[in-house]
Amino acid sequence: MLTDITLGQYFPGNSPLHQMDARVKIVLLFFYIISIFLFDENLNYAIMTASAVLLICLSRLPVIMVLKSIKPLWWIILFSFFMHIFSTPGEALVKVWIFEITREGILRGFIISLRLVLLIMISSLLMFTTSPLKLTDALESLMSPLKGVGFPAHELAMMMTIAMRFIPTLLEETDKIIKAQQSRGSDIGDGNVIQRTKGMLPVLVPLFISAFRRADELSVAMEARCYRGGAGRSRMKQQRVHKIDYIATVVFIIFIGVLAVVQVMVK
């Protein structure tokens, strides 16, 4: 069913990762991603992989779910793996026509894929352990220094929040409309291109109408509650940095330090 798609994939829980402040998580994730690309020693990759496994354990998420997050980008990973296998010069292992598989190629392909996998898994850990609302709040407050130069941080965050709030609703509505038209005998998704496009109309028209109506109602409801944009607006849920965030930051700095030391030592 259409509504089975969970947006943002937030998985409610109470693990240390869930408890951390979203801003701290975003900043740490940012530096983690940089370090994935900065430190390219094999030992460092081992350390980073271990840290990722540790984080997954710490998050208490079903491992399958975290692994599944790679699925959408599976093809890109495979593609870059094979690109490197064939395109890296070095000691040839197998030769097929003009293609050469080299030892260096396999290693390089493996490392590149590992980087991508780490990148996706760590980013999705953020999505899994942070509710969309907290995420946009955090983004807003991280972007707020830019407000001084006229950057609409609040408006952007508000737009994201609204979009995220309404995507599941719209999906649900689409599902309902498709079912209603199917029970009137329409075969949505059958036939050639023209027939299929025509078949979409009975779904799209009601969907758009309801989306516009919802947008209208929402704007009236917001105005009725005196919403006037970000200036002077306070929050119901204040974002606070707790002990756990300090601990995480310290551990993370040590982690980066170790990576840096390894990098320099091996060189």
């Binding site: 509505e173 409309i177 209603a180 038209q181 009137r184 005998g185 329409s186 109309l201 009975p202 009601p206």
Partner: peptide, 18 residues
């Protein structure tokens, strides 16, 4: 929410047409 056609008659005709 299942209504979509230009006129009511056309909308009601959607099922029988299918």
């Amino acid at each position: 929410y299942q209504l979509f056609e230009e006129t009511i008659a056309l909308d009601i005709a959607f099922g029988p047409k299918n």
